[in-house]
Amino acid sequence: MGNESMISLSGMVMAPVLAAGLPLAAINWHSVLFLLFASLASIFAVGVVLADNVVRMALYLVFSLAATAGLFFLAGAEFIGAMQLMIYVGGTLVLLVFGVMLTAQAPFVSIKPSAADRALAGLAGSSLLVVLLAAALSVDSWQRPGLSEVTAPTATPLGMALLGMRVDGPAAGAATGAVANGYLLPFEIVSIHLLVVLVGAAYLARAKRRRTPRPIDAAASAVSVVEGSTRVELPAALPPRSGSASALVSGGSK
């Protein structure tokens, strides 16, 4: 249905490109997607540094982390990518923005660093970047792999590994006759850790009497009304981690 018109249309669009000598057919689309996500992640990461408004920083951070999730998907780590979207972007950052709203003294608060601080940080940052890039570019032996080795998705082996069984790879155990170790113990430690953190954060953030009076302006009073319900809402905002921990278990219940 309409294939011919579509072809001619795309031919019209693509003809100049082909004439310019760019071999479209030879383009590696994996690389193009990588370039897209990588530049998004990097640009918005720099945006986080440059922005002064906290909420804008959070927005840029969301975009940067979402693009990083895209990179995870491209690297074949679907589960980590989905995890990143769910926990980081959907949980942690919502929590952060929540914190921004609870602590906003005036609309669009911005606490700016001084120019000298900026210059110093820029200097230190660029030298750090140079060191890291030099280190990254020295890893030559891993360059130029092909996509030919298509391997199975990793979510199920990952879930099995978290339950203490390894089903991935050439199975180091196959040669020696022993099963490679999984991650059951770290998994349990992390789950207990999350529970402790949950209780601790709820305890820390509980509503109590303020020692110093606060500036009485419109925004602060708007916030203080909301603050009364902090005790209910903040612990409520925490559990996604434990919820996704159970989703982890499900990944391995094959």
Partner: peptide, 27 residues
């Protein structure tokens, strides 16, 4: 663009994110 992506490319992006984070923490 015709070349496949390698580990080095990921390391470069990681380095940029890391540096941005460190500067952000300091600044």
């Amino acid at each position: 663009l015709t070349e496949p992506v390698g580990v080095v490319h990921y390391l470069i992006v990681g380095a940029i994110l890391f540096t941005a984070g460190v500067v952000c923490m300091a600044l």
